[in-house]
Amino acid sequence: MMSEHTGRDPVPQPLLRVEGLRVAFGPYEAVRGVDFSIAPGRVLCLVGESGCGKSVTARAVMRLVEPAGRVTAGRILWHGGESAEAMDLAALDSRGRDMRALRGPGMAMIFQEPMSALSPVHTIGEQLTEPMRLHLGLSRKAAEERAVDLLARVGIPNPRARLSAYAFQLSGGMRQRAMIAIALACSPKLLIADEPTTALDVTTQAQVLDLLAELVRELGMAMLFITHDLGVVAQLGDEVAVMYLGRIVERAPVFDLFDRPHHPYTQALLRSVPSLRGPRPRRLAAIEGLVPSLAALPPGCVFHPRCERAAAGLCDRDDPAETATADGLRTVRCHRVEAFAS
């Protein structure tokens, strides 16, 4: 299913467009046909519960799922190159020169656990300057100057001294900031953030989110932000894509999505998040049942066993196609969307 609607998007020319992406791990498909696009200076949040394929999607864009997984279908079109032609990353060798050259100056990634993403035996300074010297051809001196600027920019106090620090000497929040600085080292056009604040405390999370929002605005990067936390989405995203079992079930600008969620899954997710405002609910709204395993997907719409609005003979038989709303800003994958969307 190609996404015709992107042509009518009011946002500028996308930097990255993913079409019909499928990723398989052995016999199981973790991502089953995903379409989205991101424009420079915009934040797209991929949101969903564990196992929905959001992290795999992000890693597939970086071509980091191999060799355990495989991109089996779809195109990952990169418009960030010099030529006017888009480059299909899905067709590149995941370990080849083109792909390696793209990681760093093209796209960079930050992870949930900075401790496992940072090298324990190299100083922060070494990890910061190495990609700059490799990709940007800076001298040691120039790279170090830029490293100090970057550390200061991500809010690390006393940056020059921190160049010689090791990851374990920093606190969790500082580590995450250091990782962001490393990701920014080569001024990437796209930053992929995989649950970067999940392991952080709420006050530290707030600081890191503010920082990321500022950086996107200031540097004009695009950001693909993976999270399970709808609160974070509301604070950070420009566009939201909700994933369930390897598919995007609904995609919309953030205000539209929170104001008028169309897909029953989105609606249920939003209801089950307790807010700090408004009347205190006596019970939380839960989605009954469990997420089916990828090994035994239900027939028809994969959400129908848990869906309040599932229609017998339709939802349990036919897989719904992605439909775009009239304004082209929103896509929903649901048979019954006309029946209840305003």
């Binding site: 709420v202 006050t203 707030a206 600081q207 989110l209 509301a234 929170f258 807010s275």
Partner: peptide, 26 residues
């Protein structure tokens, strides 16, 4: 107060309005 102000709320409209108290230090 700081703790409450740091919670990201599932409402994009609070984005600009919510007064977030940024803590100094660790």
């Amino acid at each position: 107060e700081v703790l409450l102000s740091a919670v990201p709320e599932p409402d994009p409209r609070l984005r600009g309005q919510k007064r977030r108290i940024v803590l100094q230090g660790e």
